[in-house]
Design a protein around this nucleic acid. Structure first.
Lengths: 352, 352
DNA sequence: TTGTAAGCGTTATCAG
DNA sequence: CTGATAACGCTTACAA
């Protein structure tokens, strides 16, 4: 439709502020951007005008004038798992559309579960080239310090998927992993017929905070609501299918009466292969994490019963929005940035 | 952080296109916006330049210059239920932030389940004032025709929550309700101990397509995967707590062995009250729809066992994006607009 | 310490 | 049919 006479927005502009405050555009801009060289009286006068008019700056116009480009870096673990691959794919896909929004995305991969290397890479980030980073990695004191350093250089920092709460990250982008573990337990408890039996928990790494949190949540609900179950000690899979295929057979030999498996890490291939080969898929309730091609197929064929997931598209979009917002400390909408704990049954899987 | 020397984007602009095509800015703009008054030779020359440079227009700059304001109207049913209230709240909340994005949101309420009145209101929409509408309403031939008319006037149309597939709506913003019903059935089948018994389905209105679709999905999965259950005929609640409180007692007198209830509409208050008063809450598995204050409390206290939901914030944001995109037929990201079927247990409810 | 004026990428209003 | 040229709201040299 063609609007011949677009109604004016009526919103106050810098010009209005300047007029009301009795100063020039440049001065308004200076206080707006907290630039030096303005007397405090003048600052106050401008601020009053801003308040009186309830002025709010037009970010689009500002960015246009600034020719500003946001350079954002995703620091991801160099594992083979599908979840990380999905994240990478999302980053690639979105960086196309983000060209329009003056935002450049890049990725650097760090050897998995290797804090040293992570620290090295983070420390080497050039603040002249990068405005913000999203870090998916382990939580160690050295990592915390490294993040503190980049923050001090003026780079925005968010932790991704696995939180780094002791660090100076500006935000965490990911699900509440304790709740995710609790959710898994509730579903496990309800789904296993007769509501009792042995449960196996497969985890990824002891260094991965997300995995630990899930385990805690799982144990808590299992203990309080389903005490008839017996939870076996965790199996540490380390995203390594071969390792799992070695560990699983003796374990099942010892405990042939396992009734449920909670696969709390993202690497599902070893487990799926084992279950299929041993025709165990229909007898055991399996709760997995992250909707990926493999886990999706497992859900469709009944090998998996539930998948707890987080939307990788949302994860990336949220990280970008948050990074940009903290880079020019603008406000953001917390509700929009809350990553949901998605529960998938074969009935509500999204298409494709 | 302050970027002293912002790197240039390097992206081609209208100026580049004009230069390469050997025409003026104005002419480029004309073909860009498909305005009349350009020889087809010139058009082709400009288009070639656009292609060669792989130019893509800067929407921010365009909107700035246009002073364009998007006026969007939400047409909602005038029911008392909490879900619609949540939608309204989201619309109100988001319209604040959208001021920055040159987007104005407004709401009009139509008597629930009243196609006549809906038609009247839709037909009276002035295309000079409104750029797009999001309609949450019943599907009837007259509604379809009315929507066809507004579309012809150049107004963008999306259906909200409940689809109007036979109409000329540009998009549907909402969940796949058949899948939602299937999901409810799967959870019901798994959660009821012993996996058998009588199931009651409470629906809203026969005119509401979303409710019908849910019922279909529910029945399908129940029949194929849980044939031991007996599904009773639907109860039509019409979002009316008093009505339900009248209908429920005789029904339970007749079927004291009901083991599960699928409340497929959004109005849950009557049901919750009945269950609590009759101390039936712990014995019956209840699957409800839409996370609202009431249903959330019911989930926390164990009256409800599962809630299937759709994020009202996402619904509104998605409707706005889609309406804006079709208004100036720009592309959009389908993945971002897909509304998920959320499953909530008490363990994964979002905070607050 | 403050102001003037040019410019960011696009659209719109005039003339020609 | 086509082309200058002035906006849009904001930033930023460069002056004053």
């Amino acid at each position: 439709m063609t609007k011949l006479v677009p109604e004016k927005t009526g919103k106050p502009t810098v010009n209005d502020v300047a007029r009301v405050a009795g100063v020039s555009l440049a001065t308004v801009d200076r206080v707006l951007n907290a630039r030096p060289g303005v007397r405090s009286v003048t600052i106050e006068r401008v601020n009053k005008a801003i308040r009186d008019l309830s002025y709010v700056r037009d970010t689009a116009a500002a960015n246009l004038a600034r020719r500003r480009i946001y350079n954002l870096l995703f620091v991801l673990p160099a594992t083979q798992n599908e979840f990380v691959a999905a994240l990478e794919a999302q980053i690639a896909a979105q960086s196309e559309n983000l060209q329009t929004d003056r935002t450049r995305l890049s990725i650097v991969k760090v050897p998995a579960f290797d804090p040293q290397e992570l620290v090295r890479i983070v420390e080497s980030i050039d603040p002249a080239k990068i405005d913000g980073i999203a870090v998916f990695g382990p939580e160690t004191p050295s990592v915390r310090d490294a993040l503190h350093h980049v923050k001090e250089k003026g780079i925005a920092v968010v932790s991704l998927v696995s939180d780094l709460p002791s660090s100076s990250r500006d935000h965490f982008v990911g699900i509440d992993n304790v709740s995710a573990g609790k959710t898994a337990a509730q579903l496990m408890g309800r789904f296993v017929p007769g509501n009792h039996g042995k449960i196996l928990v497969i985890t990824g790494s002891r260094l991965a905070r997300d995995h630990l949190e899930r385990r805690h949540g799982f144990d808590e609900v299992m203990a309080s609501e389903f005490p008839e179950f017996k939870i076996l000690p965790s199996l540490e899979g380390r995203d390594d299918a071969d390792l799992l295929l070695k560990l699983l057979p003796p374990l099942f030999a010892k405990h042939p009466d396992i009734r449920g498996i909670y696969s709390s890490a993202a690497g599902n291939d070893g487990l799926i292969q084992f279950l299929r080969e041993n025709a165990l898929d229909q007898e055991i309730v399996v709760v997995g994490h992250e909707l990926t091609p493999l886990s999706r197929a497992a859900l469709e064929t009944g090998i998996f019963d539930v998948i707890i997931s987080q939307d990788t598209g949302h994860l990336v979009r949220s990280a970008v929005r948050l990074l940009r917002a903290t880079a020019d400390d603008a406000p953001f909408n917390p509700a929009q940035e809350r990553i949901r704990i998605d529960i998938y049954l074969k009935e509500n899987m999204p298409p494709e």
